[in-house]
Amino acid sequence: MALGLAFVYVPLGVVLINSFNASTVFAWPPQELTTHWWTATIGNEGVRAAVLTSFEVGLVATTAALLLGTLLAFALGRYTFFGRHTLSLLVVLPIALPGIVTALAFRTGFRTFLGLELSIWTVAIAHATFCIVVVYNNALARLRRMGTTPEEASMDLGADTFTTFRLVTFPLLRGALVAGALLAFGLSFDEIVVTLFTAPPGVTTLPIWIYQNLSRPNQGPVVNVVAAVLVLASILPIYLSQKLSGESTGGGRL
């Protein structure tokens, strides 16, 4: 376990240290440390534009995933109908397929079958297909754990369907939905393969910016700073997601 964790986290530590490396060729170990690259990154217009685009795409994809994933979870978790298991498989399939296959399918669908021009919306729609999966899985797992007893008790006491959902179902489901939304946003934010195939020229998300600038002269240190920020920024959503998932399933009280 120690070797496995070291294999994952030592390179991340190297990225963090290299973001303060004064050398542009990444001499190791660093002979001198500086914060110059952090200052340069803050003032980099390309980085700011890429971050904004990634946030816009992530928010649209996450919103769509929350709505559709929750509805699917209720449909498949609360009702029995013909083709339910097939539909469940189709919902989960996008995240299991190779990214290049999904990307090619969406590009062909948008350009050939629908005749649409690629835009930031095509990127968000493509991202939403695999973001739905994490919201759906979280919501479905929570619905199965909570059962129908609380809702039945609410209705026995005179509450209608909407009141029961507002006062009973949604509060019990809220933690799982927030956790799913955080994971969905993270998936969208760092997606690169699907984005490359569904984004038009000029629309650059942060992962694409990193990919494009990784080999450019004097851009390596800035790329390391961006990567370091992403590593640090990922800690809080992951922590919140685990905490909320634990609380929504009772794990927070163990």
Rank of each mutant, 00 (worst) to 15 (best):
L172Q: 02
P98C: 07
A73T: 15
L230E: 08
N138T: 04
E117M: 03
L76T: 09
N218T: 05
I120L: 13
Y9D: 12
T204K: 13
I42P: 11
A199C: 00
S54A: 11
W28K: 02
N218V: 09
W121Y: 11
N21P: 02
P98T: 07
A2I: 01
T102S: 06
S23V: 08
A128V: 02
T70A: 01
G250W: 10
I42D: 01
A22V: 01
Q31M: 05
A124I: 07
G115K: 11
N137V: 09
T169I: 13
L177K: 10
P94A: 13
F185M: 10
L12F: 09
E151A: 15
L173N: 08
I192Y: 12
S234G: 15
P217R: 04
V229L: 15
G180F: 15
C131T: 14
V60P: 05
L183P: 00
V15D: 02
C131H: 08
F170N: 01
G252Q: 06
G252H: 13
G180W: 14
F170L: 08
K243E: 04
S241W: 14
F82L: 08
P221Q: 02
R166T: 14
S154A: 13
F55I: 15
F185H: 07
V10G: 00
P29M: 10
G147I: 14
P237H: 15
E191N: 10
V92G: 03
